[in-house]
């Protein structure tokens, strides 16, 4: 069973990082706090015998996605501190906090009230530990979910093409701006 000390330390890391993401004024600090949360979640995955997912979590999220965030922040030079008080809709902050507190209360009350949240029957396939976990995950991925797996490859190709098209410097707008400068 999961060690309570591991669970509470990893939870504290996760929640500190999560609050850091939404409260840090500087986007770079937000990105680094996101790394902290992701590492905490990777620890939770290891504690739940999901070793492959823990490794992928660190490699893909902390290694690729957050680096991409930092890269864009540096590229655009938006790493200036943002004034959190500056708001066009002041009521939006209170509405957001009310939404957060309300949905948290509903979810927690539901989970705590229902003593046993799981009602389904246990699987016979099993969720073995160690390298057996990777083998089971691969078998499930390439047999039951093989069409979904192929579709994700299509999704990644579309995302790459979309990113290239979106981030390319638009030629026609350059021409328009140079034309307008000439006319001025």
């Amino acid at each position: 069973m999961v060690d309570p000390i591991v669970f509470f330390i990893a939870s504290a890391i996760c929640l500190t990082g999560a609050f850091g993401v939404i409260l840090a004024r500087n986007p770079v600090h937000s990105a680094l706090m996101l790394v902290m949360t992701l590492f905490g979640i990777a620890v939770q995955f290891v504690a739940q015998e999901a070793h492959f997912l823990a490794a992928v979590q660190v490699i893909v999220y902390a290694g690729a996605i957050v680096v991409l965030f930092l890269f864009v922040i540096m590229l655009l030079g938006v790493d200036k501190a943002q004034n959190l008080e500056l708001s066009i809709l002041p009521v939006q902050r209170w509405a957001a906090l009310t939404f957060g507190a309300g949905s948290l209360a509903v979810l927690t009350a539901f989970i705590v009230n229902v003593r046993e949240p799981v009602t389904g029957a246990e699987s016979v396939g099993g969720i073995a530990t160690g390298s057996e976990n990777v083998r089971l995950l691969a078998r499930s991925l390439f047999s039951d979910y093989v069409y979904a797996f192929e579709l994700t490859s299509l999704l990644l190709v579309i995302a790459v093409i979309g990113a290239v098209v979106l981030a390319r410097k638009p030629k026609d707008t350059e021409m328009v701006s140079s034309d307008s400068e000439r006319s001025i």
Partner: peptide, 9 residues
């Protein structure tokens, strides 16, 4: 909890 690899997939 359910001993099912589907969640991890």
């Amino acid at each position: 909890r359910l001993n099912d690899i589907g969640g991890q997939t």
